[in-house]
């Protein structure tokens, strides 16, 4: 994938996830960052840091982004959520408008 089509999402611990912009923009919050005129400083470099989202949670969120795209294209599968992640994941999803 071409660099300009991707965005780097960085977790609280500094772990980096490189995902397609299309996927990341499933999140309304990230979409706003990437598309607002003038843009946020971080997004000009194609990266966004989430100091309050742990690596485990951010990974799960990236998986959801791709699951969402598949769902939209007609592949309706189950999205598994581990019970122990639910609350933390929910808070992140709320923040990301996802």
């Amino acid at each position: 994938m071409r660099k300009e089509d991707t965005v780097k999402l960085i977790s609280a611990e500094g772990f980096e996830f490189v995902v397609h912009k299309d996927a990341a923009m499933v999140s309304q919050t990230i979409r706003n960052m990437l598309t607002s005129p003038g843009s946020f400083a971080e997004t000009q470099h194609g990266e966004v840091t989430f100091p309050e989202i742990s690596t485990t949670i951010l990974e799960k969120i990236c998986k959801y982004f791709y699951w969402n795209l598949e769902f939209a294209s007609g592949k309706e599968t189950e999205f598994h959520i581990e019970p122990e992640l639910t609350l933390e994941l929910m808070m992140a999803a709320n923040y990301l408008h996802t």
């Binding site: 959801y64 999205f79 959520i81 019970p83 639910t86 994941l89 929910m90 999803a93 996802t98």
Partner: peptide, 9 residues
């Protein structure tokens, strides 16, 4: 994702 989490809870 929020809906899915709520459903899971």
């Amino acid at each position: 994702l929020l809906d899915l989490c709520i459903r899971k809870i």
